[in-house]
């Protein structure tokens, strides 16, 4: 729906309902507030993602420096992490940034997997603390992403459903993009493990 079509629909609706105590105007006002509030919520939750991703961004050099010299066989992995980290600030769109951050999650997860081959390093106190910090960071990113996606779902629902879609078209709101999960997170949880 174009902006002009939406404007015509809104004007006609307000005029038709004006004899009934301007009820149409009140409805439009209510819808406007609701859709604008939801858009703000999306913006706020995006900034929540930004904060935790920035934390991880700052943590990566420390992580790499701590384990690089001990995990000599994983040189390629660390090079990829360092290279990706340098590209993230140059992302041109949300989609591109989300994609790179997902790759970063996978690569950092790869360190945990590789650690299995270094039992001495794995059992060191510093490494355990570092792993915890990394896991905690991933949990926070996951929470921020789910909060963001939940708000995006609510906004996108308003943008495509009647009658708020008319107002969304007038305001030229486009459906926001989701921060999709990484492939590793899409694997179904092992429910049976909960009963062991």
């Amino acid at each position: 729906m174009s902006k002009s079509t939406a404007l015509i629909i809104l004007i006609v609706f307000v005029i038709i309902t004006s004899p009934f105590c301007f009820v149409g105007f009140i409805i439009v006002l209510f819808l406007y507030n609701s859709i604008v509030r939801q858009k703000n919520r999306v913006g706020m939750s995006y900034s929540g993602i930004d904060v935790v991703l920035k934390k991880r961004y700052d943590l990566v050099p420390n992580l790499v420096a701590s384990v690089k010299e001990y995990m000599s066989h994983e040189k390629e992995l660390f090079e990829k992490i360092t290279s990706l980290r340098s590209k993230i600030p140059n992302a041109t769109s949300k989609e591109e940034r989300f994609e790179m951050e997902n790759q970063m999650s996978q690569l950092l997860g790869g360190i945990n997997v590789s650690l299995e081959n270094y039992p001495d390093l794995k059992s060191s106190e510093n490494m355990i603390q570092l792993q915890r910090t990394l896991t905690e960071m991933e949990e926070q990113i996951s929470a921020a992403r789910r909060a963001y996606n939940s708000n995006v779902l609510a906004l996108n629902d308003k943008i495509v459903t009647v009658p708020s879609n008319v107002l969304a078209a007038f305001l030229e709101y486009k459906p926001a993009i989701y921060f999709e999960t990484t492939d590793s997170e899409k694997i179904n949880p092992n429910v049976s493990s909960l009963f062991r």
């Binding site: 929540g48 996951s142 009963f195």
Partner: peptide
């Protein structure tokens, strides 16, 4: 806080509560 809510209610915990 929305983010705290999702942080606390991780998918695994939700699954365990549902069980």
């Amino acid at each position: 806080n929305l983010q705290t809510g999702f942080y606390v209610l991780s998918p695994n915990l939700i699954e365990a509560i549902a069980q």
